[in-house]
Design a protein around this nucleic acid. Sequence first.
DNA 1: CTGAAAGCGCTAACAA
DNA 2: TTGTTAGCGCTTTCAG
Lengths: 332, 332
Amino acid sequence: MKPSKVLMSDVAKAAGVARVTVSRVLSDPDSVAPATRAVVQEAVARLGYVPNLNAGTLASSRSRIVGAIVPTLSNAWFADTMDGLSKVLGAAGYQLLLGQTGYDADAEEKLVDAFLGRRVDAMVLTGTTHTAGVRTKLQKAGIPTAECWDLCDDPIDMVVGFSNEAAGEAVAVHLLAQGRRRFGFLGADEDRARKRLQGYRAAIARAGAGEVTTHSAAPPTSIDDGAAGLAQLLTVEPRLQAVFCSNDTLAMGALLECRRRGLAVPGDLSVVGFSDLPVAAACVPPLTTVRIASRELGERVGQLLARRMRREPDEVPRIHDLGFTLAVRESG
Amino acid sequence: MKPSKVLMSDVAKAAGVARVTVSRVLSDPDSVAPATRAVVQEAVARLGYVPNLNAGTLASSRSRIVGAIVPTLSNAWFADTMDGLSKVLGAAGYQLLLGQTGYDADAEEKLVDAFLGRRVDAMVLTGTTHTAGVRTKLQKAGIPTAECWDLCDDPIDMVVGFSNEAAGEAVAVHLLAQGRRRFGFLGADEDRARKRLQGYRAAIARAGAGEVTTHSAAPPTSIDDGAAGLAQLLTVEPRLQAVFCSNDTLAMGALLECRRRGLAVPGDLSVVGFSDLPVAAACVPPLTTVRIASRELGERVGQLLARRMRREPDEVPRIHDLGFTLAVRESG
DNA sequence: CTGAAAGCGCTAACAA
DNA sequence: TTGTTAGCGCTTTCAG
């Protein structure tokens, strides 16, 4: 058959021990006498034994797999989060089963079903908005679950992120302090972007600076969406003084459009992005943006989940606010 | 226990049929009489039955999981490939188990072991250089395997990519045609970048244009590596006329450094990148680069693997050259 | 089209 | 420390 069909019983026979002993050498070497252990390890190596982890999972109901669901890997920020998560989990002996929703809530629920069917030991979701089914299923599965890239009061289990509203507010406050009065918002049509807009709008309203001209594009958004979006915004409000883009990709498009039109940034228009991609600092002019530590976010999720899966007695807090910082550069 | 403990036998009982019948309804509905099928489906829904896929895998030795290994997800090009792969596989009913090597060949072998232990139905590797163990294990596992992002004559099973040497040559030819004579290369210290350099260097040598000044940085490379690298190159060869960077990130750094030094691009120096990230076109000046269809590459791998896993009689070719194109913009 | 029997390969208890 | 005895929950034959 497939992989040379070496079974644990073959190793046991070769080593002159029982199967359990082989199993122990593999999963908890210290529980076996050094001499026995050596014999078994030699047999494992000599026969090229590859344990069937599915059988192990079935018997122990622990899979050592963590399921993670993101809208798309094409956005560098989610990819970075998965990079950090995968690195930490890998080091802790877990594997990553990854799914993409394409920003579709029903797709998310299907993935949750499939992952739960694999008996994943933990789950990672993006955002805090899910179908009712996702919530229920995950809750009754009773596995550690982390929602990330946002915050909420009542997570399924844990949330790890930052407040998108607060970030939007911070941008507005920054722009208002520069004396800007006519605001625009260029956003991806998705949940977290909408929250950023809420915060932004609220702070602007509070300052009595009037309406925010908005435009949104279907995610995943591109540089071209940003350019076209800004053009649209300027059609509606030619006197625009500042635009907050819900991600750096859109902001780069906006910058591009300004260059094409000969609009001075930040002279005529302030442009602010979100997430602080590495390119943000290399843009012309360097992009002011909200810095989110995407990779660290993933690492943090990995550490928290690993702790929970170890089932140690320590209580792990449910809400983890990692915050954000405004990276003020030249564009706004 | 965990998920409400609804077993297939419970569903069978509720529906008044045998377990096999439930199994059939789930895996091959058409093999069951419509009436029976309906009863079973109703019971499945009513009880909220979630099949344990691990048990299924153990019994059938088909996991419906594909393992994929990339150096890192932090590089947009690999993330895009995984995005495409995951999308296609998901649609075909497969799940993606993802691992990162951090450009470490031994890490790759460990991941292969772990994935094989899960009895993945297929494997995807990045590049064509692997430890001997990886090759042997995958071959004797006998599962469809795709190596990608490069080409070679003797793949483990299939290769899907393009010739990195040929791409390097094409860049050199393009630059030579512009009359450039003093060449530099800025590369990540990894296999595929080295192949690009080989092709580049060969074409330059063939044209009698002398030595290539090179500098390399440890991957994953950053924009800062690109800036520092160019500075280093200019120290060694101040009269540099053209620099080929092994990826767009490095090229963006080089562009940045030129701006800082007041070097005109392409007037004083041509800068060429690799992979054609979306930002390449938005750079100042727009970056000339080698376009690789990263996402399509992943989609293609997914389709090929799906075909092979279906075990249809059609022979699938082993070598798939997807090619590349030179995206000539203003930087070189 | 449906069912009965026989595992898939491993780990969890418990015993020795 | 090591071994024995039972399954984990499903799918595969093969009958009926």
